[in-house]
């Protein structure tokens, strides 16, 4: 079955594939960072007592979560140039799409993490004479963060896999680069199996690490 497996094609296209991998990693890191920041802001607003604001955020989160990521990418890809009137590189339009999309998911994780801390803990902290910010800083957040970090990391691994969707706007990430080589050299088997294997190894190891961490630091 694998008698005709051509490693030469892979070796020759390695530099090109590595360029694609760099774009994948760059996009993942920036989108995770941006998504976390925006997601935290959204979660804080969602938990705030100001009803109209928290409802607006809830609507945003539910709206984005009911859309396919590909459609969100298309939206921003055509929307941003029209709104700003200037052409934006597809990298930035895709990056913004990812940040807006992932923030919706991150904010739910962060909100669940904060909500998972029992009310009694806050009451106890306040009864001990801590101020509300101190109660947040020393009692709620240390527990909440420990609860949510494994889930946030798992979501980031999913995010790494999702970056492959930039294929639909022709951005040259790892998978798209492989697709280009596969078409050029007519070697789909070698290229696609390599992509699958690389992702499998990276994502599997990463999720094992997350599990290990979860076991070590869980409350």
């Amino acid at each position: 079955m694998f008698a005709g497996f051509d490693f030469d094609v892979l070796i020759k296209s390695l530099p090109f594939l590595w360029l694609g991998m760099q774009l994948t990693l760059q996009l993942t890191v920036l989108a995770v960072g941006g998504g976390l920041i925006l997601g935290t802001v959204l979660a804080v607003i969602r938990l705030s007592p100001i009803k109209p604001l928290s409802m607006a955020v809830a609507a945003y989160v539910n709206f984005l979560r009911s859309m396919p990521l590909i459609l969100v990418i298309f939206w921003f890809y055509t929307l941003i140039p029209r709104v700003t009137g200037t052409s934006v590189s597809s990298f930035y339009s895709v990056l913004i799409a990812f940040i807006m999309f992932e923030a919706a998911y991150y904010s739910e994780i962060i909100r669940a993490g904060i909500s998972s801390v029992r009310r009694g803990q806050i009451s106890a902290a306040l009864a001990l004479g801590l101020t509300p910010p101190q109660a947040m800083r020393y009692v709620v957040l240390p527990q909440a963060v420990r609860n949510m970090i494994p889930v946030l990391l798992t979501q980031s691994i999913i995010m790494l896999q999702d970056t492959s969707l930039v294929y639909v706007v022709g951005l040259r990430d790892f998978l798209t680069s492989a697709e280009i080589v596969a078409g050029r050299d007519n070697r789909p088997i070698e290229l696609y199996l390599t992509v699958a294997l690389v992702f499998l190894v990276v994502c599997f190891s990463a999720s094992r690490l997350v599990n290990l961490m979860r076991r070590r630091y869980s409350l």
């Binding site: 088997i189 992702f199 999720s207």
Partner: peptide
Amino acid sequence: ELFRNIPLLAQMFVWYYVVPEL
């Protein structure tokens, strides 16, 4: 682990371009 750790799009390409060949 196999299906969860490979991007869905890569799986799509494997089923469409690779599996028929194998």
